[in-house]
Amino acid sequence: MLEIKNLSKQYSGKIAVDSLSFSVSPGEVFGLLGRNGAGKTTTIKMMLGLVAPDGGTVKWNHKNGLGHVSYGYLPEERGLYPKTKVIDQLTYFAKLEGLGKKEIKKSIDYWIDRFDIGQYRNKLAGDLSKGNQQKVQLVATLLHNPELIILDEPFSGLDPVNTNLLTEVILEEKEKGKVIIMSSHQMDQVEKFCKQVVLMKEGKAIISGDLTTVKNSYGMMYLSLFGEVSRLVTFCSANGHSYEQDGKRVIVSLEQDQDPLAILTRLKQEGVDVNEVTYLQPTLHQIFVDKVGS
Rank of each mutant, 00 (worst) to 15 (best):
D18E: 14
K204D: 10
A16C: 01
Q281D: 07
L267G: 00
M200G: 00
R249I: 11
K201M: 01
E97M: 10
Q269R: 08
I206A: 06
T163A: 10
L211V: 01
Q189A: 00
I150H: 11
P26M: 09
S12M: 15
N239G: 02
H62Q: 14
N6E: 11
L166F: 08
K192C: 02
G34R: 07
E103M: 08
V17D: 08
Y92F: 11
V197G: 03
L2S: 08
L264R: 09
S237Y: 03
P82R: 14
S21D: 13
N36V: 12
P160V: 02
L232N: 05
C236N: 09
E76D: 02
Y120C: 13
I150D: 11
E3V: 15
S183K: 01
G209Y: 10
Y218E: 09
I251G: 10
H241E: 09
M182Q: 12
L264F: 06
L158E: 06
Q134F: 11
E3K: 15
N6S: 14
D188M: 10
I108E: 01
S19G: 12
E76T: 05
P146L: 12
D152M: 05
E228L: 04
V289C: 08
A205N: 06
K248T: 08
V51T: 13
N64D: 15
K201L: 02
M220L: 02
K174S: 02
G31T: 00
V198E: 03
R78D: 02
A140F: 07
L124P: 00
L66D: 07
L33D: 01
D159M: 01
Q189T: 00
E175P: 08
T41H: 01
V139F: 10
S217K: 15
N6L: 12
N216A: 13
G118H: 05
M221K: 11
I263R: 05
T213R: 15
I104F: 14
I117K: 05
T91R: 15
T91V: 14
G209S: 12
T212L: 13
P154L: 02
V24D: 13
A205E: 11
L171G: 01
G203K: 05
P75N: 01
Y110H: 14
P75D: 05
C194V: 06
H185E: 00
Y218W: 12
G293I: 11
D188T: 06
E3N: 15
G227F: 12
K178Q: 11
Q286Y: 06
I207G: 05
L7D: 08
T212W: 08
M187I: 02
E168K: 12
